[in-house]
Design a protein around this nucleic acid. Structure first.
Lengths: 190, 190
DNA sequence: TCGCTTGGCTAATGGGATTAGCTAAAAGCT
DNA sequence: AGCTTTTAGCTAATCCCATTAGCCAAGCGA
């Protein structure tokens, strides 16, 4: 029986999985559907990835890297409130454009220090640190500020993604308001 | 064949499901395991709840109500930064004590206006509004402030749950710092 | 006591993840 | 080119889970 190779690669599969998750929702992403999308039978995927959990983690790591890149690019050459706003908008745009891969980053317990997810996530803090450098944050409070930024941004992104639309007032306006709130808070902290 | 009644009720099942989710993790909560916990066969659950999604929503609604109660109680008689800190701590304690039912509240798309989840969630905003009343927030910015608070709490809960332990600096300290940040931001906004 | 409703149960279906084992396609070597 | 080895597809089979159908006793009210 002739079975032509389709040239699958781990990265190809991860990318396709991320794209599919964006289309149909992360919870709907299934090994079977992904295989179908790739024109291949389900078990074939196991030659390249260890299983569903492995796939999810790879997508999450990919998303973390992409988010870091997006924020890094957006904040280039900016400082202070400008950089803060640019970072916030970049993250929000990413969540709106790629809801599936963003969802993959939520609720994952990092396994160990070598976990690609943990590594990608910590690398993702770099751009945040760059933003904070525009405020006079003392080194010992830098960690706190980093965590605060991460918490607020992700909290709002999540709000935007899941239930934001249930209120009438424009979410974008609230977003700007939140940016100001953080900006003022950071100024005080400096 | 004799089959004694076990006296199951929708509320009993919901409560047991929430408790089990706290123990083994929300994603591990399964109809089968819940049935086993209740000493009953899986299909029997369907006489009281419509299915897994229904169960999840009931647990989420329960969690929302409990969170609102906890924050309401904690902020009784407090105002300003005091109330803010009390609310934040109450939520954090809840997330730490009941990780499973908290996870149930995440990533749920409210179905319609009559959705119990949506109702419980919006009722949950009451205590937040009470906290904000301690700051001089103008009525038109109240919505923004509410969303900001929600984002903040959400984001921090996520931080606490997922990646908190991967950094060395004490998370509790960062928590206090974050509360100060918001407090100062809200003061400025007033 | 007699029936009717109800809440257990077993059996069956369908779908998803995953593993075992087969075979042909590539790739490498002489 | 021909031979060998590795690799990447495939089919078949297993297991677990959610859900539905249909049976039957428990308990309640007349």
């Amino acid at each position: 029986m002739s079975v032509p190779r389709s040239g699958l690669q781990t990265d190809t599969i991860t990318a396709a999985g991320a794209a599919l998750a964006d289309e149909i929702g992360f919870t709907e992403l299934t090994m079977g559907r992904l295989a179908e999308r790739l024109g291949v039978r389900t078990p074939s995927l196991y030659k390249h990835i260890a299983g569903q959990d492995d796939l999810n983690r790879r997508i999450a790591a990919l998303a973390h890297t992409e988010i870091a890149d997006a924020i890094g690019t957006a904040t280039q050459g900016r400082a202070g409130r400008d950089a803060l706003a640019a970072a916030a908008h970049a993250l929000r745009d990413f969540v709106l454009t790629h809801p599936g891969r963003y969802a993959a980053t939520l609720g994952l317990t990092p396994i160990g220090p070598g976990d690609p997810v943990a590594i990608a996530a910590s690398r993702g803090l770099g751009p945040f640190e760059a933003v904070l450098r525009g405020y006079d944050i003392s080194p010992e409070t830098m960690t706190h500020a980093l965590r605060a930024l991460r918490s607020l941004f992700h909290g709002f992104a999540d709000l935007q993604a899941t239930g934001g639309f249930q209120w009438s007032t424009d979410v974008g306006e609230s977003f700007e308001w939140l940016i100001d709130l953080i900006d003022q808070g950071l100024r005080q902290a400096a």
